[in-house]
Amino acid sequence: MDQITFLLFMYSDVCIVLGLYVYLLRIKKLIGFQLGMNISVVMGGMAALLFGVLLILQYPFHFTWITIISTLAGLVTGALFGRLFDYQSFVTGLTNGVIVGLMSPMIGTVLEMTSVFVWFVHIFFALCLLTILISIKRS
């Protein structure tokens, strides 16, 4: 795939995550702490995974910087989503984002079929978002 496709994917992911954050900021009174903890874990991990894989496919020569950047992305996303609900979900989302962010550039480097994997990760991300939205509606 081209470089510009990865850039478009990354931009759309950032937009989706920001949109979900604003949406949750408005209705955070309706969500219990259990669902909040799960949301922060899922969003921190998914943000770190997407950032690590897309960045390492785009710039394959800067392994260290990309590890640091994806770890920070997972940390910040998990912390922001957890901060909406509870202190404990804050710590859990932060930790999970750090773990996945340290691992995700290693996944990106060993890939053979990059486009298939990128599509798979995005379908997985969309399914996670769908599950989160359904469980928000039910609660």
């Binding site: 404990q88 710590v91 859990t92 932060l94 930790t95 999970n96 750090v98 773990i99």
Partner: peptide, 17 residues
């Protein structure tokens, strides 16, 4: 109860790694 379980999970995830 729940508090230290969360802490426990966070610490044991990060520190052995």
């Amino acid at each position: 109860d729940r508090f230290s379980m969360t802490m426990c999970m966070a610490i044991t995830m990060i520190s052995p790694l």
